[in-house]
Computed example of a mutant assay.
Amino acid sequence: MEYRFVHHWNYALQEDEHQILESAISLTSQPRDESFLQRAAKFIATHAQVQYVLIGSLSEDGKEVVTKVFLKNGEVLPNISYSLQSSPCDSVLTQRFCYYPDNVQSHFPKDIELQELNIESYLGSIFLKEDGEPVGLIALMNDRPFDNAAFAEHLVLVLSPAIEEELVLQCHPTL
């Protein structure tokens, strides 16, 4: 899987954040099963202090996301599928990373889900297969600005290779 540098922030990790990243690395090295994506999402939600975490795979035609994990306040919600068109997740696919610190709804007025969930801030990152093609994405969302978006991105990027591997196994078991 591709390693992506954190290049969006001029940010020095705090001591407790180093420990959290070490715990994230430990999580990726544990034996994995079908609950890994849920454990990773809960870990991110807790330590990035975000209201919503969504991990999803792309549909065959690449026009929709099918959630594998969808959390609100650490609780698992039913999985959904939704159109990428006119959503910040569509920007994630083209830019590989997307961050809206506030007022995300005004940037995507046709995204009804953002309005229904009362989303104010959004951070998303792409997941890639070994050939560099997108396999899915992660979205962190809040009804207020993020407490520490730089650390949230660090956390997502540390967990990305393991999440990518799991998505590939679940969505494309022959790869």
Score class of each variant (00 low, 15 high):
residue 99 Y to R: 04
residue 14 Q to E: 14
residue 129 K to G: 04
residue 66 V to M: 08
residue 17 E to L: 01
residue 82 Y to C: 01
residue 85 Q to T: 12
residue 141 M to E: 14
residue 45 A to N: 02
residue 20 I to Q: 10
residue 133 E to H: 07
residue 80 I to C: 01
residue 120 E to S: 11
residue 102 D to G: 11
residue 151 F to Y: 10
residue 142 N to P: 00
residue 45 A to M: 03
residue 140 L to A: 03
residue 80 I to N: 07
residue 152 A to V: 04
residue 123 L to E: 06
residue 63 K to D: 10
residue 100 Y to M: 12
residue 119 I to Y: 07
residue 11 Y to M: 01
residue 130 E to L: 10
residue 76 V to R: 04
residue 70 F to N: 07
residue 11 Y to Q: 05
residue 42 K to P: 02
residue 82 Y to F: 15
residue 23 S to T: 09
residue 111 D to V: 08
residue 21 L to N: 09
residue 59 S to G: 07
residue 87 S to C: 01
residue 122 Y to S: 05
residue 7 H to T: 13
residue 47 H to Q: 05
residue 2 E to T: 09
residue 164 E to P: 03
residue 21 L to Q: 09
residue 87 S to N: 04
residue 34 E to K: 13
residue 93 L to E: 05
residue 102 D to P: 00
residue 40 A to P: 06
residue 167 L to V: 12
residue 106 S to E: 15
residue 74 G to F: 05
residue 13 L to D: 08
residue 153 E to R: 10
residue 3 Y to M: 07
residue 78 P to G: 00
residue 31 P to C: 10
residue 77 L to Q: 13
residue 124 G to K: 05
residue 23 S to D: 15
residue 174 T to E: 15
residue 118 N to D: 15
residue 112 I to S: 10
residue 56 G to W: 00
residue 50 V to K: 03
residue 139 A to S: 13
residue 137 L to E: 02
residue 140 L to D: 02
residue 84 L to W: 02
residue 36 F to C: 07
residue 23 S to N: 14
residue 46 T to V: 10
residue 111 D to E: 11
residue 32 R to E: 10
residue 36 F to I: 05
residue 164 E to Q: 14
residue 133 E to S: 14
residue 171 C to E: 15
residue 99 Y to M: 08
residue 58 L to P: 00
residue 91 S to T: 11
residue 31 P to N: 12
residue 104 V to G: 10
residue 72 K to G: 01
residue 160 S to Q: 12
residue 150 A to C: 10
